[in-house]
């Protein structure tokens, strides 16, 4: 059977059971590049891993994460900084990765949705709370919502519902799961010290 993968592994049809997964293939970086591109050497960390790459200065951090590093958990909803689906953390602060030139993160630490759960797979309490409160439907905005929610709590902006709303208003959810998202962030903020967002 043809091996079709997300670059980071997994399977294309989201089979919940290992027995149904299509085979995984080892992803190389055989991607074509644009001709006549200027290259800039860039070094940064992603989820604690050091990355050194020759980058086209026009490449967005979002495209580098998704297409060159295989971290497709970060979503492209608009590519114009309007929807928040591509939210990641840069040195602990949330940014929209689609409007961030990748060369600009040189020397900095990027955290994506793939870096939120513990290495052994234990979910972060906010991820658990998203599941428990059904804070998602299609789930496309969810990685961005989780990254934004973590930052909202870490920034100390989860004091009450109005404040949470204000500080999550950059992340669109077309399915309208806002009530669940609000509940998940509120619950997690109350459970954790408001100064400690990212475990």
């Amino acid at each position: 059977m043809t091996a079709i993968v997300r670059r980071s592994g997994g399977n294309p049809t989201n089979a919940p059971d290992g027995g149904l997964c299509l085979a995984l293939s080892d992803m190389g970086s055989s991607e074509a590049t644009l001709s006549s591109a200027i290259r800039t050497e860039t070094t940064f960390t992603v989820n604690g891993r050091r990355v050194q790459m020759e980058l086209d200065p026009r490449e967005s951090l979002l495209d580098v994460l998704r297409e060159r590093l295989g971290l497709t958990g970060t979503k492209k909803g608009c590519d114009h900084g309007q929807c928040g689906a591509c939210t990641v953390h840069l040195d602990g602060r949330r940014i929209v990765s689609c409007l961030t030139p990748a060369v600009q993160v040189n020397g900095q630490a990027v955290t994506t949705i793939e870096g939120v759960a513990a290495p052994d797979g234990t979910l972060h309490p906010l991820q658990e709370a998203f599941i428990d409160n059904d804070a998602l439907q299609c789930g496309y905005c969810t990685p961005g919502q989780v990254m934004s929610g973590l930052a909202c709590i870490a920034e100390g902006h989860a004091g009450d519902d109005d404040e949470i709303r204000e500080y999550l208003s950059g992340n669109l959810c077309r399915c309208g799961a806002y009530a669940g998202i609000l509940a998940a962030v509120r619950e997690t903020a109350r459970r954790t010290d408001s100064r400690v967002g990212e475990g």
Partner: peptide, 22 residues
């Protein structure tokens, strides 16, 4: 709860735009 919930909150759920083939 949703069987696909964990995949969706960890970024592992593969949307059509995430597919890749060498």
């Amino acid at each position: 709860l949703r069987p696909d919930g964990t995949l969706k909150v960890t970024g592992e759920f593969a949307y059509s735009s995430d597919l890749w083939l060498d």
